[in-house]
Amino acid sequence: MEQTLFSSDFRLGILGGGQLGKMMLYTTRKWDIQTYVMDSDDTAPAFEGCTVFFEGDIMDYEAVMELGRQVDVLTIEIENVNVKALQDLEDEGIAVSPSAKVLNLIRNKATQKKFYQEKSLPTAPFEAMDQPDVNTSREFPFIWKSAEGGYDGKGVKVIRSAADLKDLPAAECIYEDMVDFDMELAVIVARNAKGEMKTYPVVEMEFHPEANQVEYVICPARIPEEVSKKARDLALKVSEAFDHVGLLAVEMFLTKSGEILVNEVAPRPHNSGHYSIEGAVTDQFEQQVRCVLNLPLGSTDTVLPAVMVNLVGTEGHTGNVVYDGIEEILAMDGVTPHIYGKKQTRPFRKMGHVTIVAKEIEKARELAEVVKGKIKVVALAG
């Protein structure tokens, strides 16, 4: 009889204890799978839902090796991990998903962009730099991106003149052409070790103009069917090029001329798939668990049109968090808030999200606007 994953001694390790880890634990708790989670913060969102919590730095080689040697399969919820440790664990026979090779291609944006170039995958023209150069001959405006460490809008800046380059970190980066896009899209691809692959529907993303964070994710995207097929086909090509196991969120630009360009990818559950908890037959977090444990993939079909609203800390508020207006939105049909469990808020910190489902996508989008106006993430007064 083969080893069972359920109600057994099998152990799944997760590097990172943030909200993505927490939401993966919804599935492992449902299926009674043991989970070992590592994070440097013992108040991390995934602390309470796992079987064993390790307080440790996921960038620390020895800490990752110690955790990895105690589990059967190891996965991540964030790319900023010690990849050398993952490679060594793979060499010792531990199943690591995504692999160290895939993470090395993705976590550095310059390496990632060069990969698209090598594989003839459409992407915006770019230039890789050892550090910002104020004497650039590149035409303004363009986009500066830090090669490593950027997330949630950090590490990205519009460069409108040479003066904008002066205070940037003296580290590896890319200069990227600004794309005249009509819409930002994303497709999540699921792939298990058997090579079984599925794509989720194309979603449309609307961004906050200042924080450069996603404000709304709309599923399905309001695009023609032929554009949707083109985006899903491109996402599959990207997935096949990386040869990954797990989820791959492929962010794209739909240009005004109808071209689709790959912007960047994330090899894990992603903000663009949060809607799937209420909006899809199989949510992205369960799908990630299915992928890394080499289980059959679940249906990616949409149950109802859905819009996801990010809950982020309000400007000017730092301290113990209060979700002002949450009871009002709980009284609304089709509205489900998800609170990540971070006790301290600060401006633009991701603190939760809300899913709005309706029979028609335009109705869901209208309700999302109302929800956003009713709930605020603020700090406790006093």
Rank of each mutant, 00 (worst) to 15 (best):
M38K: 04
M38H: 08
M38Q: 10
M38G: 07
D39M: 02
D39E: 04
S40C: 13
S40K: 12
S40V: 15
S40L: 14
S40E: 15
S40A: 15
D41S: 11
D41F: 07
D41W: 01
D42H: 09
D42E: 12
T43L: 13
T43W: 05
T43K: 11
T43G: 09
T43A: 06
T43D: 15
A44N: 07
A44P: 05
P45W: 02
P45A: 14
A46H: 06
A46V: 02
A46C: 04
A46I: 02
A46M: 11
A46P: 11
F47W: 09
F47I: 01
F47M: 14
E48S: 15
G49V: 00
G49H: 03
C50R: 02
V52D: 08
V52T: 13
F53T: 04
E55A: 14
E55T: 15
G56F: 06
D57A: 11
I58D: 10
I58R: 01
I58G: 08
M59Q: 12
M59V: 09
M59R: 12
D60K: 08
D60W: 05
E62L: 13
E62D: 15
A63E: 07
V64Q: 10
V64F: 03
V64E: 06
M65F: 09
E66C: 02
E66D: 07
L67H: 03
L67D: 01
L67A: 04
G68L: 03
G68H: 08
R69Y: 05
R69P: 03
Q70N: 06
Q70Y: 07
Q70R: 05
V71D: 00
V71P: 01
D72E: 12
V73Y: 04
V73K: 08
L74H: 07
L74S: 01
L74V: 07
L74K: 00
L74Q: 05
T75S: 14
T75H: 07
I76P: 08
